[in-house]
Design a protein around this nucleic acid. Structure first.
Lengths: 177, 177
DNA sequence: TCACAACTGGAGCGTTCGCTCAGGAATCGG
DNA sequence: CCGATTCCTGAGCGAACGCTCCAGTTGTGA
């Protein structure tokens, strides 16, 4: 996603991203229902009509936000090479305020209801499964447990429940061996 | 919750439950945003004004639906005495259509954003933790992993991702011992 | 410099929303 | 059988919604 050379396109791209960021903040704060044309415009500091200039519909904006946030997480997941990195990723779900993490789950649920967005969910699954293969190359039978644990810990972190990433370390290091 | 003797109250109580059921169906189908006075009324087969007669506001209806569905799951969780029972509970999250499970997570996210509903989330956590104690009385260090795995599997089931409850059985039975 | 494409933003249409309220229907005690 | 009481409802108000439209502005490549 390189910055366009055209000054007009560059400014447009900046506004586009501002709208996506504003959307994510709104989803975290008030759910997908809070993403209205006027609310997004106010949050991003642009006139309401600009929202429908950069995105055909408000729903398109929501979908674009889901894809954007998923991109970020999948990239991070693909870079995970150690248990500690994975634990950090989980811990980030609960950093200072949990609203971004809540927003992501909200969007995931939104995607789960729509056939045309199922592929986005699959991206996360496959990225996590691939990370499990890298972390547990010689223990295939433990990988599903690792996957389930990561999902459970991320959810607990997002919901504000107590969680302990130490279980991941113990699971991967294999305290029983 | 015994049936009242008064004919008027009895009919009211039936309608009240019909509204809660309709709300859950709508949340599963279209998210919390789909729960509007008119939509709930149509789904439950009652006039729109009845919604605001039985619940002070539409938001109150949503909160009541969350508490009702949480009640069901906590009761089931409290009755879990074996790993198989726990695995069944997880598997039920993905029975025929996943909409009910999606609805529950939607409501959980809704609760996570509101301080006055945090207690509802805590009820699930404590019930699950208590079940972990019963299933792993002699392995306290494995309980957090069991909790995380159950949460992760439920979520995966609700989202339509592949999952395998066998990891729970292997974890509790302790294949390494 | 100029024609054009990209961008801005205000006005407003039709729809649906949450919620209020006066009054009709059902049920009670006597 | 009949007030009295409670339960229930259709109509509608003000507000916010998604979206369309178009005149005006800005920056670009020729």
């Amino acid at each position: 996603m390189p910055e366009p050379v055209d000054g007009r396109l560059r400014k447009g791209e900046r506004r586009r991203r501002a709208l996506l960021d504003a959307t994510l903040r709104l989803v975290g704060r008030g759910g997908a229902a809070a993403v209205t044309q006027r609310a997004v415009a106010a949050e991003a500091g642009v006139p309401p009509s600009a929202v429908l200039y950069y995105f055909d519909t408000v729903d398109d904006l929501l979908v674009a936000a889901l894809i954007a946030v998923n991109d970020r997480y999948v990239v991070r997941l693909d870079a995970v090479g150690t248990v500690d990195a994975l634990a950090d990723l989980v811990a980030d779900c609960a950093r200072q305020d949990r609203l971004p993490a809540i927003a992501e789950y909200e969007l995931f649920l939104h995607a789960a209801r729509r056939d045309d967005l199922r592929a986005e969910l699959h991206r996360w699954d496959t990225a996590l499964a691939a990370a499990a293969v890298r972390l547990l190359p010689q223990a295939p039978d433990r990988r599903p447990l690792l996957v389930a644990a990561v999902n459970g810990l991320c959810l607990a972190a997002a919901l504000g429940s107590p969680y302990d990433t130490g279980v991941l370390t113990r699971l991967v290091d294999g305290v029983d061996e």
